[in-house]
Design a protein around this nucleic acid. Structure first.
Lengths: 217, 217
DNA sequence: GCAGGGATTGCCCCTTGGGGCAGCGGCCGC
DNA sequence: GCGGCCGCTGCCCCAAGGGGCAATCCCTGC
């Protein structure tokens, strides 16, 4: 189990700074990978390993905000901590609106940086935990037949078996059969269980969130 | 109800600017109240009317961030939009982390300001709607006796009546009676209903920040 | 002390949910 | 065409949920 060390991805075009930060983080016990550009990072890292991203704002090629947007589109979006010397208020606003964990300015105190990283990692762990659970639920849900799904929806809506039978045009006995299979396939020990699982699975897929009109420019 | 015009509270020590902003907002159809300091605002406004707060960062006395913190502690916390000429990155970060709707810098374009205000008002309306529903549920929940609450918790945990009876040391018939009263008092038409209400009411009081999953606006 | 009210419980009856068993009918592969 | 598999269904039985009715018991106000 568990002792996977989180991976901190450091993305910054300033090589000496990158090296210094990486050393600091390694000394704190983290595994670190560093990249000189957003592109290099995106090519090399699929985001599957737990961790977070430490990101410079201004870089040649796609900048930090662009990279953050790209990350947000991936299911496994990693938490982002900005660390930059050229921070402006509008950029900060946009970064925070887009869900950045923090936005620090160089030079940064060691404790401040480590604290931000800790929070980012905590968030990532939480997200992964919740995501994993939801993924399993969704898998199970996908294993239902369309008939079973229909019954499930009506069951969690609080309808009685006989009402469900009338609604889908089947006998009550059939509804019971479907219902039993739904409970089994969804791994629900009780109706309460099923309802909670259903409410999580049926909640619409994440919406990308409107591009947040970044406070002017 | 219905056509209540939202009230924009403008808090800024710069009198000419305050006047100009107020005029702009009134022209856009909003009701505006302006205050020269955080203290003046807190004394005069209980936050009961729908709307939002347009806040300067740097002011004599308590500053904008202090006021934002104070607002967050009130149940009816109004959405806050910062509008300041002295923005710094750390102040922006703190404001956004504390849930500010936006952080704008003077001078601000008319459209940018109005758009931010629109979003703040939309958030306020949403919060009030959800809050209202939750408040009613909580009221109903508070109307339960401790015995009924105990039964309710076990019911929504998926326990059978006989298990509940054993757990609370009562007869099954009594559990049924409590259960029926819980359904009636909570206004639940079905077990599914009750479970959903319970999950909302029993969820612990809101923490400060919550973007965790759905990266907020 | 006594009446009224709420909580608790037993008794009984009905409805619902859950599930075993078997018959039926359609679809698939050989 | 045939046997097997699966979904749908009826018949039956049992457990669980829901609730009417009445008796007890305890507490409170008059």
């Amino acid at each position: 189990m568990g002792a996977t060390v989180p991976v901190i991805r450091v993305v910054d075009d300033d090589e000496p700074f990158r090296t210094a930060i990486s050393r600091l983080l390694r000394a704190a016990g983290y595994q670190v990978r560093d990249y000189a550009s957003a592109g290099a990072f995106l090519l090399a890292d699929g985001g599957s390993e737990p961790g977070c991203v430490l990101l410079d704002l201004r870089m040649p090629g796609p900048n930090g905000l662009d990279l953050q947007s790209a990350l947000r589109k991936r299911d496994d979006a990693l938490p982002v901590v900005f660390l930059t010397g050229h921070g402006t208020v509008p950029a900060t606003v946009r970064a925070m609106k887009d869900g950045a964990e923090d936005f620090l300015t160089k030079p940064v105190k060691r404790e401040v940086l480590l604290e931000a990283v800790r929070r980012a990692l905590a968030r990532d762990a939480e997200r992964r935990g919740a995501g994993e659970h939801l993924r399993r639920l969704r898998e199970r849900f996908d294993g239902l037949t369309s008939r079973e799904r229909a019954v499930m929806e009506l069951v969690v809506a609080g309808r009685l078996n006989k009402q469900i039978a009338a609604a889908i045009g089947a006998s009550e006995r059939t509804v019971k059969a479907h219902r039993a299979r739904v409970m089994a396939k969804m791994g629900a020990a009780s109706l309460a269980d099923l309802i909670r699982s259903a409410d999580r699975v049926l909640r619409e897929p994440r919406e990308p969130r409107e591009p947040a009109t970044a406070g002017q420019a």
